[in-house]
């Protein structure tokens, strides 16, 4: 009982405290590749603290929907990270079918983030919102095709079981489909979190951006919520990929958690490497890459069901 409570507490602490660190690691990796020193790894935490203290400017065209965007984005991301197993095999909230709730929570967040962008009446933010929802239409099937593979392997629709320790035993039997799903979901991770090659979070040219341009008018604490929510979303997708790749559980918390956290940092470094070595895709090429991600997962399903 006490162990369960401790485990849950650890889960909550890691899931809420670690995400900004991933952004810091990505920035550091990119700086190293560019031969710069770069900002400190903890810079995102300082940024969040600073934003929480700042005043805000609201556009006169906005309504309450403008503030709903950051709140919904953050709350849905917090609920979502409580649904996935991190280290070991337990998630604080778990039930059969929770995997579909996870996907639809992200949908809710997307709905309100895009609506709050449209609330400003700016064509830049409208453009960003349009791109976000369009790319999501292609990313969503890729996620669900991957879920088909996991559902078939685990015989369950509960994330705890789909990404649980039993997945380790499946690696020998169904390694190829799992590798395909990991590749596909990594592409989805880059797309959903607006990283290169889909989007360039570092640029200041509004026309080229997706996520950043949607939140152009947010400021102060609300913008802090947006940033924190976005880092939680990155954490969520990274955790899915890490659990897929490293499902083994030693059974000891002191071993499982460090392995998991190392895996998460590894994903952050991988994102940094992709960002440093690739250029942003032309906008018209983005759907092509996402369809490729769908096909990777679809091949995984076919391999499994043949």
């Amino acid at each position: 009982m006490i162990l369960t409570i401790l485990h849950t507490a650890l889960h909550v602490v890691v899931a809420l405290a670690l995400p900004p660190l991933l952004l810091g690691v990505i920035a550091k990796t990119k700086a190293l590749f560019a031969g710069r020193v770069g900002p400190p790894v903890l810079q995102p935490y300082y940024d969040l603290w600073k934003l929480a203290q700042k005043g805000s400017v609201f556009s006169t065209t906005t309504t309450w929907v403008f503030c709903a965007g950051p709140v919904v984005g953050l709350v849905t991301a917090v609920l979502a990270v409580l649904l996935i197993p991190l280290a070991g095999s337990d998630a604080p909230l778990s039930f059969p079918g929770d995997v579909i709730l996870l996907a639809y929570l992200l949908g809710l967040s997307r709905f309100f983030t895009a609506a709050s962008a449209l609330d400003t009446g700016s064509s830049f933010e409208g453009m960003g919102a349009a791109r976000e929802v369009t790319f999501a239409c292609l990313a969503e099937p890729a996620i669900f095709l991957g879920l088909l593979v996991l559902a078939k392997l685990s015989g369950s629709l509960q994330l705890e079981k789909m990404l649980g320790g039993s997945l380790a035993a499946q690696w020998s039997a169904a390694g190829a489909p799992l590798v395909l799903v990991i590749l596909s979901w990594f592409v989805v991770l880059l797309a959903e979190n607006s990283r290169i090659p889909f989007d360039d979070p570092g640029t200041h040219l509004e026309l080229t951006m997706v996520h950043e341009v949607m939140v152009l008018d947010h400021s102060g604490p609300a913008f802090g919520m947006v940033l924190y929510g976005a880092s939680l979303k990155l954490f969520l997708f990274a955790a899915l990929v890490v659990r897929l790749a490293l499902p083994q559980s030693a059974g000891f918390a002191w071993l499982d958690w460090p392995v998991f956290i190392a895996g998460m940092l590894g994903v952050a470094v991988a994102v940094g490497v992709v960002e440093s070595t690739m250029a942003r895709l032309r906008l018209t090429q983005v759907p092509v890459l996402l369809v490729a991600a769908c096909l990777l997962s679809a091949f995984g399903v076919v391999l499994l069901l043949r």
């Binding site: 005043g55 709140v71 102060g220």
Partner: peptide
């Protein structure tokens, strides 16, 4: 959660300076 998040944001906004302005048009 949404109610709590909304309350948190509105509390922060009440304690800080809030200005009105036109939408940023680059």
């Amino acid at each position: 959660g949404l109610a709590a998040g909304g309350a948190l944001l509105s509390m922060r906004l009440r304690r800080s300076v809030v200005e009105k302005g036109p939408t940023w048009g680059c």
